[in-house]
Design a protein around this nucleic acid. Structure first.
Lengths: 258, 258
DNA sequence: TGATGCACAATCATCATATGAATTCGGGGG
DNA sequence: CCCCCGAATTCATATGATGATTGTGCATCA
């Protein structure tokens, strides 16, 4: 029934059946992206819904299967759609955490000249997150964070700390706080900004300087503030912690390139 | 059907091309995306460089032209690549402002339940941006911001304020501040978060309440603080301004749908 | 009657080829 | 020296065919 929109475009037709649709962005793929986006915004497609078959959707949007697939794939990469072979294509939950996740992708592409600016933003967000978390963090989250710090401690007292484990614990610790902020958008952004690559560079600088223990101590201080539900202490300690990390980043530019 | 060219990859034989063992990614398109990303990260492809022709690149990655195009298009949408018909495909400047821009796309997809969280994050970022801007804003930027406020003033004193113009000026004003922060990542994020759609909703609520003038007054106060290079005043006034806007958003949920 | 295994159908994934459109670059003419 | 035009290059799109995967319904068996 969607044939209504299907423009009778013949192969030899100018294909210019109006800048109307095409003008959306020029290429046919943009028509697809904008079209699907529009369908989602106006409610024709809701989270979890299934899209028409490739053939039908391509026909409805007036494009061929190639461009349609390109557009769908692009939206897929951005976390808006999800295709399951043999089943169909579905609209995701459109959750901020899903939609902002791909941003971590571009973060990896930043050379370390932009890494500084990037980290400054991360600091602002995490600082606020810590303050928010202090007022509403749950007992479970506190326990989880404590467990993470204990494990890191064990790792540090051991002879040769497992670098990967340290990074993982660090990421997990900050993630607990971000999520305890109660703001999913904030948490998603922090997650994206504190990508694995970035974290990797940071910890290399820190370890190189033998500051693992100092960093761990700062973590402990932050957790204490959270446990005491003290927003001011949490905010300032998180800020101090991240400023310190920034200093490592500045004083010890990580590897020439990677 | 004899598929004349007798492709080296038999239907049942995966014909593992070997080095494209990147199959780990799953789909062929992921192979393309990861492959190109890798080429960029390890420096084989640098900003401004031109990619090989579709045919060659497809061959190099071990995929057909279809999936290759899907991957390239996906990266294109994310601001990493740029294809020019008749010319070739190039790597963009990989500037944060370009790479973070697509995020504005997903922001539009947020229903207004997430709009609140979204705006809270925007407030945090803009508040810090204002503080930073106060210490380093240039005379030109100050003049530009002043000009914007004057124009808004003129619009308000007129009988029927042009709604679109008000929004445009508002966006421009905040943009000047964000860019004056000197942190391109911060500016790009603010730009993406304060998308047109979001701003549209906000101003509808504000105008509906007849608070246009009050909002304008707050803008003026922020500019004064910037002109005086007073970070504290700038920070607090920006925060107050955005908290106020948030209140409008909360008390007057914009239309259920648009 | 309930559970299990299997064949079938629907759908996406990929490949291959052909044709159109836009841009760039070089040559020829003024 | 400049302008115009055509060829070559490259991406954009269309189309058809085939493989792979998933979901479903039915038949069979305990």
């Amino acid at each position: 029934m969607t044939a209504g929109v299907g423009p009778p475009r013949g192969p030899s037709a100018p294909a210019d059946d109006g800048r109307t649709a095409a003008r959306g962005g020029g290429s046919q793929t943009d028509v697809v992206v904008q079209g699907i986006k529009k369908l989602i915004i106006d409610g024709s497609l809701r989270p979890g819904d299934r899209l028409p078959v490739e053939k039908d959707l391509a026909d409805a949007l007036g494009v061929s299967r190639g461009p349609l697939r390109e557009g769908v794939r692009a939206l897929s990469m951005m976390g808006v759609l999800e295709t399951r072979q043999g089943d169909g294509t579905y609209v995701t939950a459109l959750d901020p955490s899903l939609l902002l996740a791909p941003m971590g992708f571009v973060v990896d592409l930043q050379d370390h000249s932009g890494a500084h600016d990037l980290h400054a933003v991360r600091r602002m967000l995490e600082t606020e997150a810590a303050a928010l978390a202090a007022t509403r963090i749950s007992a479970e989250a506190l326990a989880a964070a404590d467990e993470l710090l204990r494990r890191t401690e064990a790792e540090l007292t051991a002879g040769v700390p497992d670098h990967e484990a340290l990074i993982d614990n660090d990421i997990a610790f900050h993630r607990v706080i971000a999520q305890a902020s109660g703001n999913p958008v904030l948490a998603a952004l922090i997650e994206a900004l504190g990508g694995r690559t970035t974290r990797d560079r940071l910890w290399r600088s820190i370890s190189q300087d033998g500051a693992d223990e100092a960093t761990h101590g700062e973590h402990r201080g932050i957790l204490d503030a959270l446990a005491g539900h003290d927003p001011d202490r949490a905010r300032v300690r998180m800020a101090a912690h991240l400023f310190g990390v920034e200093d490592y980043l500045r004083e010890r530019p990580p590897g020439p390139d990677l």
